[in-house]
Amino acid sequence: MGSSSGQPEFDYLFKVLLIGDSGVGKSSLLLSFTSNTFDDLSPTIGVDFKVKYLTIGEKKLKLAIWDTAGQERFRTLTSSYYRGAQGIIMVYDVTRRDTFTNLSDIWAKEIDLYSTNQDCIKMLVGNKVDKESERAVTKKEGIDFAREYGCLFLECSAKTRVNVEQCFEELVLKILETPSLTAEGSSGGKKNIFKQNPAQTSSASSSYCCGS
């Protein structure tokens, strides 16, 4: 449905992967980003996928975003999707502590095991900030985790759409700043390799470990 009206040209194709515990809102985050809607989505079976076209600065980007099932039974299947990803988003639910502790216990390890891109950009996202009264993980904890594991960090709400676009945009900006990743991303696309313009950041807050 939706976005497939013709195939827009693009300069870069980036593969992004969403991982994290069951029910933290990975699919909702993706839906919120790609079609501006929020819904109670059925659990993801295996792997799902959506495309989003973005223009950042002068560059036209195609994001192929893979959304994985959270239940650990599916891990033998989802592991093969880490291959070649330029960006990986780890999602947790700020109202469920176990989804946060599992990041270091499980998900960070999965990335080490299966990611093939040394320079792959990682991003930590705490979802469901609309339920502030039920919060069980502080923002500081998220920031500390991100610092320790060298990833970007944001808190967002797929429901209210707060920071949803920023999640993906910051990730993409960081990918664009990384020569080894842009080289790869453009080779798969239709156009040939363009110049790499490092670190031209138009958006306001794209420093490491930022929040808003």
Partner: peptide, 12 residues
């Protein structure tokens, strides 16, 4: 609780 998480979003 996994069952619960899924029931809460089944055919909503």
């Amino acid at each position: 609780h996994q069952i619960g998480l899924d029931v809460a979003r089944t055919d909503r």
